[in-house]
Nucleic acid binder design. Sequence first.
DNA 1: ATCCTGACTA
DNA 2: TAGTCGGGAT
Length: 205
Amino acid sequence: MSWLDALLRWFDEHGRKYFWRFSNDWYVTIVAEIMLVRTRATTVERVLKDFLARFPTPRDLCNASDEDVVPFFKRLGLIKRSSWVRKIVCTILEKYGGSIPCSEEDLEELPGIGRYLKNVILTKLCSIPRPFVDTNVLRVLSRYLGRDLDVDSAERWLSENVPPNLLYKTNLALMDVGAVLCLPREPRCSSCPLRDWCRYAEQCS
DNA sequence: ATCCTGACTA
DNA sequence: TAGTCGGGAT
């Protein structure tokens, strides 16, 4: 049993089943991922359902105004995202003919899409597996390896230690481990699937 | 008080 | 590179 087998097995059993994870629709993915920026997934889950009921299609959102979108982000914080998400969706409709652009240059031009979200989109919508490192993944891997990583080294480590076809699932698993077990303050090491290989688990109560 | 699937601005 | 955005859950 390798660390990767243990992690993926844990994910199959305990991984969070957020509905956007099972959607390959670019519109649902874009709105979800923008809402998830620095925002808890359980909070996003409620707001996103209301949002998609109000704006069922990308055209509905693009035809609306920023003022129509603001109330949803008032519930989440980081209100500037309400103009970002509408700008992104309108750009995809009008400039890219209603399909997601899959070049890194085009994605980086979209407002609100930085290094992390670009890698998520390439993975989910473009079938180009990339590591995506958020604060959870950075904390989990730093503890696991026993040294403080930056985003560059964390992405490199994932690329070198996870087969591309398992990268997406592994990334999600690391995020869930970070959100559920490998907490910033009181990590639950005894329940962690990585405890047998983790440098931090040795000194963890 | 701290943290959440970061990105933007200066 | 640091400061800022932000309401909500714990």
